[in-house]
Design a protein around this nucleic acid. Structure first.
Lengths: 200, 200
DNA sequence: GTCTATATTTCGATAGAC
DNA sequence: GTCTATCGAAATATAGAC
């Protein structure tokens, strides 16, 4: 009993601790949700890959949706600071360039988490509806809100959306076309392209 | 009996004919697959919205997958000419600009069809696996093949991917942020942004 | 914490009348 | 072409022993 929620990570014995069962479940779930989609992944295969049974999963998660929610929350942490750093004043192209660069770094570091969102939009939106998460403040809704800010010239907003699209296309839409390119080299090339689109 | 396949459209009586039941089914399915995802849409709700029963759907389609496949094929027609127009010689930035412009027009005209693909990648990939569609020649696989062509400088390939991302972000990732903008105005602004990224 | 066993539901699909 | 009725499969989720 007393199923563990999102426990605070108090390192009891230095950096010796292996990932908890809960985290191992989430790692496997993330892998499979990206590969086969949320709906295409049954609890049975998740359990099988972990070497446990379906029922054991329910000790850690109240439902399958709960797993998706836990993974969804992981992404939030990243987007939060980046987005909230922009206040309510109109965004400038220079500030946007800075933001896009930061988001790109996070996307490269947490590739799978962002792929999860790209490939399971329907399932995640369903979650949002069920849990009445109104003022949810996630990355893409804030992204869209900024792009709707009529105080910023339309020309600039299109460039801002486009700059983000450059990153998105190079990291995700391109599949593994750039997989053989070193991270630093790709980062520099993408950043130059972003600059080209945001420069006046 | 004799369930109708993809019939050739011989206009029997001028432009008088209303959409066939088969097409009405596909229209509703497209709407719902985009809204709730393929897996999140049951045949029951499709039938209900059409005012018929589940069983009636099977007169027109052999399976639910068959519906998705029919919609998938609709997109193919668009991408084909655009992609096959580029032969096997290395793509230039100028040719790519032309191609991106054409794809953008098709995306604006057939928005829902492209949304279907963006939001149901997992389901469509599963289709491809089951039907062993190897040399499938669809839009995104050709897109990725071109971006992997090592005869083109990496710098240019990143720009090409980015240019496509600009379109993608402005039309899809931005949601309805640009919904109030006239098509022609948006088209011009996006194209300028694409030019900025493809210009040497 | 993990198991076996089972309840419950929903969905895709089929059979056959009309 | 569309219906009623039903099948069979697979999934999520629960109960309770260990």
């Amino acid at each position: 009993m007393s199923p563990p929620g999102e426990e605070s990570c108090i390192p009891t014995d230095e950096a010796l601790e292996r990932p908890s069962t809960r985290d191992r479940i989430l790692d496997v779930a993330l892998e499979l949700f990206v590969q086969s989609g949320f709906d295409g992944t049954s609890l049975r295969v998740i359990a099988e890959r972990l070497g446990i049974t379906k029922a054991a999963l329910y000790y850690y998660f109240a439902s399958k949706d709960d797993m998706l929610m836990a993974l969804h929350m992981r992404v939030h942490e990243f987007g939060r600071e980046a987005i909230t750093s922009m206040g309510d004043e109109p965004v400038t192209l220079e500030a946007w360039s800075e933001l896009v660069r930061g988001v790109m770094d996070q996307m490269m570091a947490q590739r799978k988490l962002f792929l999860l969102h790209e490939r399971n939009q329907a399932a995640i939106e369903k979650l949002h509806r069920q849990q009445h998460m109104e003022a949810h403040e996630d990355l893409e809704s804030n992204f869209r809100k900024i792009l709707s800010d009529s105080r910023v010239p339309l020309h600039d907003r299109v460039r801002m959306a486009g700059a983000f699209g450059v990153v998105f296309a190079c990291l995700f839409l391109s599949g593994d076309a750039f997989a053989s390119v070193a991270n630093e080299e790709l980062r520099a090339l993408v950043h130059d392209a972003v600059e080209a689109i945001l420069k006046r």
